[in-house]
Amino acid sequence: MLRLLNIELQKLRYNRSAKVISIVYFVLITFIALIASIEFPLGSVNFRVADQGIFNFPFIWHFNTYVAAILKIFLAIVIVSMMSNEYSYRTLKQNLIDGLSKKEFVLSKFITVIGFALISTLFVFIVSMILGLSFSDYNEFGIIFSDMEYLLAYFIKLVGFFAFCMFLGILVKRSAFAIGFLVVWWIVESIVYGLLKWQFFKGTDIAETISQFFPLEAMSNLIKEPMTRLGAVQSAATQLGENFTKSYDVTFLNVAIVLVWTFLFVYWSYAILKKRDL
């Protein structure tokens, strides 16, 4: 295990672009804190975003994991290129000749993916903790550590997404095309959802029932958008006669779907590699 992680880290450590993008990614996560400083005058009062309750425990777990997850595309680039580089440098072949098995190769990449997700989760935890302790209205121990499932969901979401990127990297062999494929896949999911929703099953919930099994949709369902949950937005909506009654919980079904996809992506990566002549 440690040997495989060690091998992969050696490959990443000296790769300048991978290093730069990873650093940018983690710096950007810490910049979530900057939201706190956004303020603008609203009539006679100064409107501060930080005072609107977005940094209240436990809501902050939901809000920060949601915002931080948007940044995952940066790491996706690193992961796709760490797969496709092995093809373009032909080092995959050399690694196998040197005595790495195909299983070990895929595992070393997947362990790295888990490592990236873990560090990201840790970062989000620390940043949220600092922000929350500075701005939250409630600082009781029990409240701070409630709703922690959003961190778990964030971790699983990253692992699932990165496993998808890893699979695309192996499948397509070229970083740019793999990223393109990712975008195309996202568009296809949206089109299929649109067709189901507005053509085939108009006026029912069947489209949602089906689309929750799509990989990207499942990942995005893990952490639902937190905006409409904000007190300010809710009261504004009530005045307009709109009522948000949706659940923002992390559901077991969503977690299970993403875990199954993760397993499939890793397994397919291995299967492709095993079948291919290099």
């Binding site: 091998i7 050696q10 580089n85 050399q94 000749i97």
Partner: peptide, 26 residues
Amino acid sequence: AIIEHPNFYPYMTAVQNLALVCKIKG
């Protein structure tokens, strides 16, 4: 073994590349 043409990580130095091979071979 070396096959057809040499495959290494272009962004690593000779020593870094060989260190990686050592890790793989144990």
